[in-house]
Design a protein around this nucleic acid. Structure first.
Length: 496
RNA sequence: GCCGCUAUCGUCUAGGGGUUAGGACGGAUGGUUCUCAGCCAUCAAACCGGGGUUCGAAUCCCCGUAGCGGUACCA
């Protein structure tokens, strides 16, 4: 623990219920990623737990990078996760509100115009760094003469607006990290309005938090350094402050912050939806990144999450995104579903692959899903695991062939023999059901002293091309006599 | 460079002055089964380092170290 901090006691964070109002404030500059989803979740859980309100605020003041598409993507991702919001705001539609506050700041002398060009700013930065200054802007705009201002105006320079930072320490209280005093000497006179007139984050964020009567700001630790600046702005405006709770970052396996820029859509929530993950699994997974309940429970329903979530049990250090754990949770939640529900979930994937047509009956599909059983980690897995049910356009897996069908001519001869016998036996079966098939095949293996596993694997490869999968008897029954005999014949031909 | 934050198995974490430092994911081994998955059993695996304080420190304090975040007219 650092200096100047006071530990938050491990009792539940006390709040006045019914007054809680939190917000998630994404910038629509890309898809929602795992980290963003977790921020949304924590806010949402906190709101639900306290019967409060959860607001979605689109922080799109960066007009150059914000897009409607990514806004839509964020909506979709949140909806998929089941994180619903009570109110929605878009900052670009609230310009007049921010303008009013900026004017107030200017009038009261708490903000000033800065006419520096990008180039000048860059030079100042280099100088400041050389001088080991804790700041990278020298505040020259604070002391501009009226002549200088006139000159800049005549040049056509468009000023931005900077906040004048106070010279007294700023106390930052954080529900998770404790409290500290920030040395004003390290505080930047932050730009609050761009030269194009658009206010930016540090201004709009804290203004809106006050305007919307946000009680708790729960956001990623990357915003920790912005907090004293925002507090300074709020103080200058005499705005009520929310309570802050900075949650630790979600990291990649090298320990770096997860970001769209570095990790692409590998971390996009919508991508996981497309791959056949369940929102319950994602929610459960993401909740446990930085939050824990006790030393026993790993699986939490949404209701349990709402009931048990508490900021006091959120840790301080970052958590690595471990897809293996997500996969485990996902298969858990998939296996909770009954066959009908799993079939519903899996149909779109079959469709996408063009495997479904009008001849495929619902009952048959459900039987396939039932046969696959607990073998799905994601719904997408249904494709490699069941493709052969729909088409015989598969290759025989070379490793499987080598192991079970044999490389030598004698082994191939033996394999052909087994296949031929199996074909004859199956052909004679009157009722093509699992039990009859099973007893017929085992009668054959046991009476002819053939290893069960050898016969089964030989047949499996002939029917599916693979050496693994659901119970072979299920496969045989599901494929039907004609198809089975056809495939056996094809395998025998292949082996010649 | 400057400012800030953090530090328990590979990962998520529980615990927190006296414990065999617990659980889960992942890994390994064995069992079950026609294969795979699953299931069952077993195993390996951690308190960043150094100083204090104390009878006793992973736990409290200090100092390091490392990692990360920020350092934009992004959010």
């Amino acid at each position: 623990m650092g200096k100047n901090t006071e530990r938050t006691e491990m009792t539940e964070i006390k709040t006045e219920d019914d007054n809680v109002r939190v917000r998630m404030a994404p910038s629509p500059t890309g898809f929602l990623h795992i980290g963003g989803a977790r921020t949304a979740l924590f806010n949402w859980l906190f709101a639900k737990h306290h019967n409060g309100e959860f607001i979605l605020r689109i922080d799109d003041t960066d007009t150059a990078r914000s897009t409607d598409e990514s806004m839509q993507e964020i909506f979709d991702a949140l909806k998929w996760l089941g994180i619903n919001w009570d109110k929605q705001y878009v900052q670009s539609e609230r310009r007049n509100i921010y303008d009013k506050y900026v004017l107030q700041l200017l009038d009261s002398g708490n903000a000033y115009h800065c006419y520096c060009t990008q180039k000048e700013l860059e030079e100042i930065r280099i100088e400041s760094r050389k001088a080991k200054s804790p700041r990278s802007y020298d505040r020259r705009g604070r002391y501009l003469s009226s002549e200088a201002i006139e000159r800049y105006k005549a040049e056509g320079r468009k000023p931005n607006v900077r906040i004048k930072m106070p010279d007294t320490p700023i106390r930052v209280d954080d529900l998770i990290l404790g409290s500290r005093n920030i040395d004003p000497a390290t505080l930047e006179d932050e730009v609050i309005v761009r030269s194009n007139g658009m206010p930016n984050y540090n201004l709009t964020s804290i203004v809106d938090d006050a305007e919307m009567q946000i009680t708790h700001v729960i956001r990623g630790t990357e915003h920790l350094n912005n907090t004293p600046k925002q507090i300074a702005i709020a103080n200058a405006l005499d705005l009520k402050l929310p309570q802050f709770a900075h949650i630790p970052l979600v990291l990649d396996d090298t320990g770096r912050k997860l970001s769209k820029r570095h990790h692409g859509d590998l971390v996009a929530v919508n991508r996981y939806r497309e791959q056949g993950y369940l929102p319950e699994a994602m929610l459960n997974f993401v909740a446990r990144l930085g939050w824990s309940y006790d030393d026993k429970q790993e699986i939490f329903s949404v209701d349990e999450l709402i009931e048990k979530f508490d900021l006091a049990r959120v840790g301080k250090s970052g958590s690595v995104f471990d897809i293996k754990k997500l996969e485990w949770l996902n298969s858990h939640y998939i296996n909770q579903l009954d066959v009908a529900a799993r079939t519903d979930a899996v149909i779109p994937f079959w469709q996408q692959e063009g495997l479904l047509d009008a001849t495929k009956e619902r009952d048959w599909l459900e039987r396939i899903v039932d046969a696959v059983g607990e073998r799905l980690t994601t719904f997408q897995d249904i494709i490699p695991q069941t493709r052969y049910f729909f088409t015989d356009a598969y290759e025989y897996d070379s490793k499987a062939v080598k192991k079970w069908w044999g490389g030598s001519d004698e082994k191939k001869q033996k394999t052909r023999e087994i296949l031929t016998n199996l074909g004859q036996i199956l052909k004679k079966i009157p009722t093509f059901d699992v039990e009859t098939i099973e007893s017929a095949i085992w009668k054959y293996t046991d009476e002819n002293d053939i290893k069960r596993v050898a016969a089964m694997q030989t047949l499996r490869i002939a029917l599916t091309g693979m050496s693994f999968g659901p119970s072979l008897f299920d496969i045989v029954a599901l494929l039907g006599k004609d198809e089975v005999l056809k495939r056996i014949q094809r395998a025998i031909t292949h082996l010649k």
